[in-house]
């Protein structure tokens, strides 16, 4: 167990270091001269280009740049926006709460709907409830969120007027985006839990629980679900990182401020430090979430062995 924790911590540290290097390298992978690309077609002198290169540190040797970038990133200094000159970290601070609350709300929906759907599908295997839950899962996994989002807007905002189509701040404005983003995890959790439950329901201890006369509800909830839940918990936590990047599209559909708007505008305006900042934040959060999931699972389930 201790050696697993050490290995896993070392692995994540390596991945984060790699992410830092890759993000810092991004600017060098641009075909052509990054400084020229940033100014676009605007007429600038060679001296001005040189000044831009110097301000970005592009005139220093590559290893020096990578090293100083890594130190800078770790300290939370992500540079300044090329367009406004304001620190990137300020933009991230403003955008992150909105994106995190959207991802959390979507995850809440995913768990609240996915877990019952998976349990019901497994208990009523082969009946209409199973077919319904499975269809719900497959559709949620397959449909593009930018279409379901549009569908929800037309249906619940324009036609029925129950929820606002855009905007943020109020809890009501969060409902449609959370449904849109949450359908995928709901489907994925439901599908995984269904197969885990089916496996567990055939185990001897479930038979023993029935044989000693427990009510079926108690057997399913206390004996089967508790043993089937672990893979679903793992999936749910790992999904959280993916939801952060999925939020990029959902935010665009509902015109919400957040990391998504930030990165898309950054790409369109060739504002590299902004893009670097958003990419770095999502990749680091994702890696840390995966790490804590692995450690949590090893702690929760003593049967897990790591070679």
């Amino acid at each position: 167990m201790a050696s697993f924790i050490v290995y896993r911590l070392g692995h994540s540290a390596g991945v984060i270091l790699g992410v830092l290097v890759l993000v810092s390298l991004m600017i060098h992978l641009v075909p052509g001269d990054p400084a020229q690309l940033m100014v676009g077609d605007a007429p600038v002198s060679a001296a001005q280009l040189q000044a831009i290169r110097h301000s970005l540190g592009l005139d220093r040797p590559l290893p020096v740049q990578l090293g100083s970038d890594a130190v800078r990133f770790v300290r939370g200094n992500l540079g300044r926006s090329l367009r406004s000159g304001r620190p990137v970290i300020d933009y991230l601070r403003r955008a992150l709460p909105s994106t995190i609350s959207l991802a959390l709300a979507a995850m809440l929906f995913g768990v609240l709907v996915g877990v019952p759907a998976g349990v019901i599908a497994a208990v009523y295997r082969g009946r209409w409830a199973d077919a319904l839950a499975t269809a719900f899962a497959v559709v949620g996994i397959s449909l593009p969120s930018f279409w379901t989002g549009i569908l929800f807007i037309v249906l619940f905002a324009v036609e029925l007027g129950w929820f606002p189509a855009t905007g943020q701040g109020s809890g009501r404005a969060l409902v449609l985006p959370a449904l849109t983003l949450g359908w995928y995890p709901a489907g994925a959790i439901g599908r995984l839990l269904r197969s885990a439950m089916l496996e567990v329901l055939h185990k001897e201890y479930v038979g023993v629980a029935r044989a000693k006369g427990l009510r079926e509800g108690v057997v399913v909830m206390r004996h089967a679900l508790r043993n089937a839940l672990l893979p679903a918990v793992t999936l749910a936590t790992v999904q959280f990182g993916a939801l952060l990047s999925g939020a990029i599209i959902t935010e665009t559909v509902f015109a919400r401020e957040g990391l998504g708007r930030l990165i898309v505008d950054g790409i369109l305006q060739r504002d590299f430090p902004i893009v670097q900042g958003v990419v770095l934040v999502i990749a680091v959060i994702y890696t840390l979430v995966n790490l804590s999931t692995d450690l949590l699972c090893a702690w929760l389930d003593p049967r897990i062995h790591y070679g």
């Binding site: 890759l22 999925g246 599209i249």
Partner: peptide
Amino acid sequence: VDILLAFPGIL
């Protein structure tokens, strides 16, 4: 591959 997989989804 580990490093590339740290960028989830569309990132």
